[in-house]
Amino acid sequence: MEVAVDQQWLDPQEQAAWRRIVGLMTALPTALDGQLQRDSGLTHFEYWVLSALSEAPDRTLRMGCLAGSAHGSLSRLSHVAGRLERRGLLARRPDPDDGRSTLATLTDAGWDVVSGAAPGHVAAVRRLVFDPLTPEQTQLLAEIGDRVRRSVEAERSP
């Protein structure tokens, strides 16, 4: 791999911040996934899928919208939705308003699972993320998350 001579490398402060972010992106999902697996038999992504459906009107979303809400690709969602469907936690059907789309609906069993998982998950998020922060740091974290997310989304847009 050839490196450009005019490459702008991270300065020491940026490098230190980046290493912390990478560590956080690795450690936090692992911790949350472990808690959900132990307490509810769900992966973190499965929880996000069920949670998004639980908050949707009629507990139903188009698969494309659900992928965005769960922060995953449509391909990943399709595999996970198949597993959740086999467990009776969601049902898929063609969208009557758009034959090219598929609707996912949270079943009553899925509602029971996600509503049972939510208290433990929220407690873990509070303990791991918000308890160590001041209210000002929480606000700053939200602002930083928004800025970085917008930058990533702009990079993905044509």
Rank of each mutant, 00 (worst) to 15 (best):
L141A: 15
A67W: 01
A52Y: 00
S157Y: 08
S151W: 03
A154E: 08
L24V: 12
R19W: 09
W9Y: 04
G99P: 07
L28G: 00
L89T: 05
R20S: 12
T105E: 12
P96Y: 11
D108M: 06
S157L: 13
F130C: 01
E46D: 10
V148G: 04
S101Q: 12
G110C: 09
H121N: 10
G82L: 14
Q37G: 01
G64Q: 13
P132C: 06
R83L: 15
S78W: 01
S151Q: 09
Q13Y: 05
S157I: 06
A124D: 09
A118H: 12
L24F: 12
S69E: 15
R92D: 01
D108T: 11
L42N: 00
G110D: 07
R59W: 07
G120A: 12
G41P: 07
T138F: 09
L103Q: 02
D98L: 09
S54C: 10
D33Y: 02
S157G: 04
R20I: 03
L36H: 02
L89E: 14
S40R: 07
D11P: 03
L36W: 01
I21G: 02
D146C: 06
D58K: 15
P135L: 13
A16R: 11
H71T: 15
D131H: 10
A123Q: 14
A52N: 02
R147Y: 08
L28V: 13
A81H: 00
A27H: 03
E143K: 08
L42H: 01
D95S: 09
E2C: 04
W18S: 09
P158H: 08
L89H: 13
T60I: 06
W9C: 02
A142F: 14
L61D: 00
S75H: 10
L77S: 00
Q139M: 09
G41Q: 10
E136L: 13
H121T: 01
H121S: 02
V148C: 05
A52T: 14
S69W: 02
P132F: 05
D112M: 12
V129Y: 01
E143D: 11
D108W: 03
R86Q: 13
A81T: 02
I144P: 00
R20L: 14
L66W: 01
G72E: 03
S40A: 15
V152G: 04
E153H: 09
R127P: 00
D6L: 10
D95K: 07
P12V: 08
Q35C: 13
A4V: 07
D108G: 12
G120I: 04
A117I: 03
W48L: 15
D97C: 07
